[in-house]
Write a protein that binds this DNA or RNA. Sequence first.
DNA 1: CTCCGTTATGTCCATTCGGGAATAACGAAG
DNA 2: CTTCGTTATTCCCGAATGGACATAACGGAG
Lengths: 124, 124
Amino acid sequence: MASGKSDWGIKVRVWVERAGVKVLGPGRVELLEHIDRQRSISAAARQMGMSYRRAWELVQAMNEAAGVELVEAKPGGSGGGGAAVTAHGQEAIRLYHSLVASFAKTSQDVALPAEPLAAPPDTT
Amino acid sequence: MASGKSDWGIKVRVWVERAGVKVLGPGRVELLEHIDRQRSISAAARQMGMSYRRAWELVQAMNEAAGVELVEAKPGGSGGGGAAVTAHGQEAIRLYHSLVASFAKTSQDVALPAEPLAAPPDTT
DNA sequence: CTCCGTTATGTCCATTCGGGAATAACGAAG
DNA sequence: CTTCGTTATTCCCGAATGGACATAACGGAG
């Protein structure tokens, strides 16, 4: 029963750009949240099963694309240093979540019919 | 003036799945429309600047994922054969466009503020 | 000064993706 | 049967992606 019930679904991916370059996406925001909790890029990366390299690149890309520091990182110091999500970063997280919520609501409203690809009756 | 005005924007990508596998996306629907006009996969591919191979693979994937033939292709015959978008395919195009329209509307409604990342005032 | 864990950066490599080209299959028209 | 342009299929390769690893830089604590 490959199509026994109705396993059709709508998927939406939302992201925020500035000057045409990506600033926030689902993965980036998730990373922001992990950094916020861990106060460390490497710890966040580990927790997400992502390489530190990639996490760091994402942070760079985010900061540059946003034009403001969303994550403030510093090497050295007690514990080796660490990273923190700035006030702008916090705001970015809130903003993105509200966007996702809006589109999720739309997704509910436009729910697909049981048979999305039933050809409409001939109108002649 | 890297951020002189307000070059922030929201981007949304919508796609339709069945049983967890992608059926329709922006590129696939565009391909459907080109095939519908050209009545040929290869012509559609040329027009889109895409290799015939990729176009053909997309058609296969679409047909299989949908569980119904969205494109009916036949080799041989006068003119070498050709391809046509079925009634189900036509319906798929309509469906996808309506989805995109809905999400575009939401995108308008949730338009970003001029300074998306202005930190909210301290509430203490 | 030494130690430590994190940030910062470079190099190498497996995987994926899709283009390009080559080839066969096909079937109606002539 | 031959011709013709399209569909169908395979093989090879370049680019991009991102993981794994190695190494330096950093700076507070002791």
